[in-house]
Amino acid sequence: MTRACASARCREFFAGARDIMPLVIGALPFGILYGVVCLTAGMPGWVAQAMSACVFAGSAQFIAAGLVGQGIPFPFIVLTTFIVNLRHALYGASVAPYLRGLSAAWRAFLAFGLTDESYATVIVHYRDEARGNAAVKHWYFLGANMAMFAFWQLNTAVGYWIGAALGDPLALGLDFVLPVVFIAILIPQLKSRSTILSALVAGAVAVLAAGLPNKLGLLIAIAAGMLAGMLTEKWNSRS
């Protein structure tokens, strides 16, 4: 499809939409499961769908639907959502330098779609100077966001309306697609001692802290990985 594009913007847009596809497929079982959880939590269909459209944050929506089902007060659910999504602030900080030249409207709009999936896709593209066209890479970001958004809406609808009939989407192990895609993206990026150590420490801390509620373990693990990477780099440059 990118070949049919006349402009660099168009090429970037479709390249972003194409590159996020493995992650879109990885998110599919979660979208369907989310729909099913909403159904069992007694949430009307429009609530499930509106939440996917306005919040657009898989894990937070999943947890929120579960909490609604348990009758937890809504302010507490909003607070939980904030904690679960705190990692997005780190993603925002990480892409911020690449978005400096953009208008406020562009940045505000791109920020809305900064999910785990689009961050994973976009940051690799921004980092690699040999890839794409630096002046219009925000179109790649937009393409990835919009593809993810469109499929997330579709997943929710499918999950809510026919999810129960499909059976358990986890039975085939489709939820394993997401970690495998992350492996495929992560491993080629580990090129130095500091990046390898950063990944190892983050992984180990994530396993040890997996019992913590609200994905706090993930946040702590990312922080530990950053620290490990920096310390190794400092130590390397001294010796």
Partner: peptide, 17 residues
């Protein structure tokens, strides 16, 4: 420090799974 965010985030998502 921010250059380590993606590596750390990927690893932290993969390892428990």
């Amino acid at each position: 420090a921010l250059t380590y965010v993606p590596m750390a985030a990927f690893a932290a998502i993969i390892a428990p799974d």
